[in-house]
Each structure stands twice: as C-alpha cells, then as structure tokens.
Design a protein around this nucleic acid. Structure first.
Lengths: 137, 137
DNA sequence: TAAAAATATTGTAATGATTACAAGTATTTA
DNA sequence: TAAATACTTGTAATCATTACAATATTTTTA
C-alpha cells in the first residue's frame, strides 16, 4: 500500500492534513466511493472536515492526475485512486462498483486516431454482480 | 431514415403526438441531445410541450429499449436513438459528442464473463475533436 | 521572529438537473 | 356515451455540485 503523503507529493500536491486523509481513504478503500461516502467515513475522526473541502480536494486531485473520476453512476461522481487503465462494472441491483480487467482493449481505426486526440478512455459495464446472482452464499 | 411512429410501435410504445415528435427529433438529429436541447427545438412547433413530458418520455423509451442514455457528460444525460453498440467521444473544448466505430471491441476474460452478467456496455473517449484541432478550416 | 502574502478550509447560499406529485386532458373500452 | 385508463402538464421538492465570502493556516520576506 502506497503512502498517501508521498503519493500526493509525487503528484505535486501539498499534503495538508485533510488531503492526506482523503487520499489515504481512497488508497485503502478501492470501492470507488462518492463524496458522501468519503465524508461519512472521515467525519468520525475529523469532525471539522467540510464537504466543500472534499469537493475541492477531489477536483484538485483529478486536475493533478492523482485520481480519476468515474461517471458510471448517473447520480453522483465516484473516485478511483487507481489510475492505470481498467474497466468498471456497476451492479444494477446493489449498486456496487467493481474493477474489471480487460483481456483486450478496444481499438479505434487509424483514421479515427489521426482525426481525434484521445486523452481519456472510460469503459463501463452494467449488469448483475456475482453476489447478487447467488445471494444465499 | 426510419419512420418515428412505426419505430415506436415496433418497440411496443403507444405513438402519441408528443412521443412521435421526440422520437422523430432523435432520429433526425444524431447529436446526442440532452433534455434542454430537445425541449428548445420542439418548443417552437409544440408550444404546450412540457419538460416533464420529455423526461417521462425518454425514461419510457429507455425502458422499452428504444433509446439509450449516455452519461459521458457529467452535467446532463444525453440520448441516442441509435442503439447498436458503438463508442462515444466528447470534445473537452466544444462539448460535442461524436459516434466512433470500434475496430475491435473490448473483451473480458471467460472467468469474468461467467461471474458477471453483462447487460450493457458503454465506451467513452474524451479529447479534442477534429474541428477544434484545426479551427480555421 | 513578526508582519504580510499566499494557500487551504469552512459554512452557507445559489444553481441546475431531475423527480414527485396532483390535476387536467385525451384516448380507449364497454 | 359514460367510465376507466393512459398521457400530459405545471409546480414544487430533492439532491449533487458549485459559488462565494469569511476564517484559519502556512509560507515568505524583511
């Protein structure tokens, strides 16, 4: 597990108390939390933390490439500190989001690649997760 | 160009005046419009059309598989009457959304495919579109 | 070190997309 | 044609996110 403070510094982000706590949470909880979940989780140990700070911080992290935001859930943005390319799956029953590894990345034609500058790729799957498929286990 | 009314009937949707107008707009404008854009476009010829009806109608269309909704733009949902699988690109400068054809679809491992039931796949690219790359053309 | 400047955090209020709801209108059924 | 059903509408509520202004903290500089 990477150290949150060092991770922030390596991305050129000043490691304030709040920022370290938020990054630490993201590194330890690979559940693609939304702002509310981060807020609830950190509120116990940091009662003065404000939700605005979480919004500001995640925005900064994203600009600096320290997290990526996932729009698989239409309701709210979700965040992932694991920025290597991978696909996401959301269960339409329980809402959980999983990382999925691809056997084969999608590819565009050479013509498309020359016309468009691709900066970011997101691959989202939706369906039923293993837990919801066999609930009594 | 497919006829909007027939298209609705084939999907088991009663073709009311409003529904036909909305589907007709989607079939004729492959720009992945959001609710506001549909509303503004149709308001001239149907001044009594309400935005709530557009929301209700698009929800119904989606349930019946007549359109798919795209969450590539975090701000608002966008709609596409072309339901065959294809990827989408959004320009981070002008916001326009393009359809992209894939040379190669992404593939999951057999193990993942047996564990997860995949019902829907969305592939989003972001970057700079051809028009914004060479604006003086 | 102390004052000044810059940066970070906070709480409240505003915004804007979407949904809930209740009433009205149109269509279908009997 | 009357009753039942389905569809549409406008207003109000909800909820995630952003704007903003005031504090607090940290860094810089003299």
């Amino acid at each position: 597990m990477k150290n949150a403070q060092e991770h922030l510094i390596s991305k050129g982000i000043h490691p304030s108390h709040q920022r370290v706590a938020i990054m630490d949470y993201l590194l330890k909880h690979r559940t693609h939390p939304n702002v509310d979940e981060i807020y609830s989780a950190l509120n116990e140990s940091m009662p003065t933390l404000s939700k605005t700070t979480i919004y500001n911080t995640l925005k900064l992290f994203e600009e600096k490439g320290a997290v990526s935001s996932i729009s698989i859930d239409e309701k709210n943005a979700r965040y992932d500190a694991f920025t290597q390319p991978h696909a996401h799956f959301q269960c339409i029953q329980c809402g959980a989001i999983y990382d999925l590894d691809l056997n084969q990345e999608p590819t565009l034609s050479d013509e498309t690649k020359s016309e468009f500058t691709i900066l970011n790729t997101q691959i989202y799957y939706k369906g039923i997760c293993p837990k919801c498929k066999t609930p009594e286990k």
